[in-house]
Amino acid sequence: HNLTITQGKLFFHYNPKLCLSEIHKMEEVSGTKGRQERNDIALKTNGDQASCENELLKFSYIRTSFDKILLRWEPYWPPDFRDLLGFMLFYKEAPYQNVTEFDGQDACGSNSWTVVDIDPPLRSNDPKSQNHPGWLMRGLKPWTQYAIFVKTLVTFSDERRTYGAKSDIIYVQTDATNPSVPLDPISVSNSSSQIILKWKPPSDPNGNITHYLVFWERQAEDSELFELDYCLKGLKLPSRTWSPPFESEDSQKHNQSEYEDSAGECCSCPKTDSQILKELEESSFRKTFEDYLHNVVFVPRKTSSGTGAEDPRPSRKRRSLGDVGNVTVAVPTVAAFPNTSSTSVPTSPEEHRPFEKVVNKESLVISGLRHFTGYRIELQACNQDTPEERCSVAAYVSARTMPEAKADDIVGPVTHEIFENNVVHLMWQEPKEPNGLIVLYEVSYRRYGDEELHLCVSRKHFALERGCRLRGLSPGNYSVRIRATSLAGNGSWTEPTYFYVTDYLDVPSNIA
């Protein structure tokens, strides 16, 4: 807008934040220059609390790290170098490059900038070799853009010569660093050979998330399962459950009422301010606690030095998902009996873990797994792929695949051998790939016309006998059925096997 004052003059007093240069501009645009008398524009009460600059400061050096910015700028000295009290560095987070010096300023003089007072450097006698002032900004957020400017702080001049310097606002972004852990990993099994893994992005990506790394490792069953005799009275049979499938998407929606109208769909109840505040506090606490764990609990591995020492970490090797089922080394339970199943799973520490690289999504279907087997899954978020990966501390989750139908069934015939004193040795093959492992066998036998009897055969007993022995049988026709019990439950009964026990007292003698 054009402003013209045809008559009258300007009068400025007691404006401590208004620089004289701005008042002189007002004289020019209003056409009143030359009308004012000496005392109409006070030299001592206008701009006496402001830094009124008329020179431009330029930054000469900028260096960044993930949490620091090192700045240096060209030296500046007023005509009387004693008038320079120091520099004021202003900075704040700036997602967009549209910041002005006066953003967030209120009537009390406060604003949204963080201000650092910096002492002037030592003055050199040689004007050509003056030290460049600077400042190291610490405690910054990774991968965050900051708006920065600097200006001088000078003393009051009796001659009211307006001098000083100020830089333009520059924008500097800190470097990326390792992201925080992925949030809320959930693993479920939808079949006997697959596990579905879902997660949420890290709360602090500290860069642009480029991919996720998912490692999985087959877990050995508890050692007590191999040692305890679950045929003993009072000892509860062990059981394991597989990871249940995901709930429906509708039930997972946030901010939804727990109660549904019987007449149909209901609208979600909005969260109160107290609920939102509580969630923010919980989120802040979780982030602080995660940072504490990362800094205190997890110790970084030592990389190899120039002395030739090897990095103890196993090298990563990509495998196809079809090879995942046989990740671990199978060892027989008892070496003397080769027909026992290889369900003991000690994992070799030198073995390469299978892994998958996930790009542009937060889910993965891990296939080719062994049925009813526990897996430990390790999830890392990465925001750099080359020249070397920059990934987060791992988040861990466990899951067990679903049982395989008929995996616990005894394959092959049940054979028998009759000894003296009416002892019958029953023999059968253990299931080759049971659900988890076989903890015991149930032997059901009966003599024709009598009630059915049951015998429990422990895992250890089966390994020693290759089956079991029935003792003290009365003469007669017998039928026997056997079924295995694994961590997933009972298998199917075998087809009945028949044998006849004679009275050993009636056996004919070869003595003449």
Rank of each mutant, 00 (worst) to 15 (best):
Q380D: 05
S363W: 07
S283M: 13
V334L: 14
S444M: 07
A405E: 11
L213H: 06
E404D: 08
N360K: 15
Y498C: 14
T340G: 13
G308R: 12
Q384R: 08
K432R: 12
G374M: 10
A394C: 08
H416F: 11
G306W: 13
C266T: 05
P475Q: 09
C391T: 01
Y259D: 06
H294V: 02
Y292R: 05
T347C: 07
Y212K: 00
N255I: 06
P346K: 15
S315Y: 08
T502V: 13
L453T: 07
S251R: 07
E442N: 13
S392P: 13
V359P: 10
I410G: 02
R316E: 12
G374E: 08
S251V: 09
T502E: 10
E227D: 07
A463K: 11
L437F: 13
E279L: 11
G472D: 08
A335G: 09
I377L: 13
F337Q: 11
S320H: 10
C269K: 07
K271D: 06
R318N: 09
R353D: 15
E247N: 14
E351I: 14
G325K: 13
T303C: 15
Y448A: 14
G412F: 07
S474G: 05
P312M: 07
A463I: 10
F289Y: 08
G476E: 01
G264D: 15
E420K: 14
Q252V: 13
D408P: 01
T343S: 08
A395W: 00
D503T: 05
T288K: 08
R390S: 13
S367Q: 08
S262H: 08
M402F: 08
L464K: 13
E279R: 05
G436V: 13
P475L: 06
D229N: 13
R400I: 07
P349D: 09
W216C: 12
P413T: 03
A263V: 11
D408E: 03
L470F: 08
L225W: 09
V507Q: 15
V439P: 09
T386V: 01
E282D: 15
E265T: 14
L280F: 15
Q380C: 11
Q219C: 10
T485F: 11
D323L: 12
P496Q: 05
H371Y: 09
T241G: 14
S262N: 06
L232M: 13
V424I: 02
V507I: 09
A335Q: 10
E417S: 13
K357E: 14
C456L: 06
L280I: 12
S392T: 03
C267L: 03
S486P: 00
W242A: 14
C456Y: 05
E388L: 06
D408L: 03
P475I: 09
G472N: 10
N208D: 13
E227L: 11
R469V: 08
L228A: 08
V334P: 11
V331S: 13
V397Y: 10
S363F: 11
F298R: 05
G207E: 02
P338K: 06
D408Y: 03
T415L: 12
N422S: 12
V397Q: 03
I276F: 04
N360H: 14
E389S: 06
A220Q: 15
V414E: 03
L379Q: 02
Q380M: 15
E404A: 04
N360T: 12
H371Q: 12
K432W: 10
A336V: 09
Q252R: 10
H371L: 14
R390V: 11
A405H: 13
S458D: 02
S320D: 11
G449L: 11
C231N: 04
V439D: 01
K278A: 11
E265K: 07
C267V: 06
D291Y: 02
A463G: 12
N435Q: 04
S458L: 06
C266Q: 06
K361H: 09
E224S: 14
N421T: 10
E451F: 15
G368W: 14
K236I: 05
S509W: 13
S304F: 14
R286I: 04
F372E: 02
V296W: 05
H461I: 12
G374D: 03
V331L: 11
P403L: 03
T373R: 07
V331N: 09
S304M: 15
Q252G: 10
T497M: 14
T497K: 06
P238L: 04
L470E: 02
L232G: 12
H371F: 11
I410A: 09
P508V: 12
I482N: 00
E388S: 09
Q380A: 08
N295H: 01
E282F: 11
C269V: 08
G476V: 02
Q252F: 08
P431S: 05
A381L: 02
A405T: 08
S284R: 07
S486G: 15
T307P: 12
S305K: 11
A407H: 14
S268K: 12
S257K: 04
Y504N: 06
R240F: 14
G234M: 10
V480A: 07
W242R: 07
Y445V: 06
F246N: 14
P270S: 06
H461P: 05
F246M: 08
V214N: 01
R447F: 03
T485L: 15
H454Q: 04
A512V: 09
P312K: 06
A405F: 14
S479E: 15
F289A: 03
Y445N: 02
A220K: 08
K278F: 07
N383M: 04
V443H: 00
L277V: 06
Y230S: 03
C231R: 05
L213R: 10
D408R: 04
H352S: 09
Y396L: 13
C269R: 09
I377Q: 01
C456P: 08
W216N: 13
K406I: 10
H211W: 15
S348N: 14
V365R: 09
F285G: 04
P475K: 10
N326L: 14
E310S: 11
F337A: 12
A484V: 06
S239W: 15
Y478I: 01
S284H: 07
S257L: 07
E389K: 11
N360F: 08
L237T: 04
R483F: 00
P354Q: 11
V299I: 14
R483S: 05
F246H: 12
E442R: 12
Q219S: 09
G472K: 14
G234C: 15
D261R: 00
E356F: 13
A263P: 12
S203C: 12
F355Q: 04
P312L: 14
F419R: 15
R218E: 13
V327K: 15
V480W: 04
E217T: 14
P332W: 08
D273I: 15
S315M: 10
T333S: 04
V393H: 13
S239R: 15
R313P: 14
K317F: 15
D250K: 08
T328S: 13
D291I: 04
F419T: 14
Y500R: 12
F337T: 11
H211K: 06
S363A: 12
S305Q: 11
C382R: 01
N435I: 00
N422Q: 09
D222H: 15
Q384K: 12
V327A: 11
P245Q: 13
S479D: 09
Y441A: 01
V345G: 07
L487K: 11
S268Q: 12
G491Q: 12
L369A: 05
S223N: 11
N422E: 06
K361L: 11
P245F: 13
T328K: 08
G489F: 04
Q384L: 09
A463E: 14
L437E: 04
G322I: 13
V397N: 15
T210N: 15
T307V: 09
R471D: 07
S509F: 12
V334T: 09
G207K: 03
E350I: 05
L235G: 05
D323Y: 11
K361F: 11
N510R: 08
N510Q: 09
E465H: 14
F285T: 03
V324S: 08
L225R: 13
S367Y: 10
K271R: 05
A336S: 10
E221F: 10
V393G: 05
S348E: 06
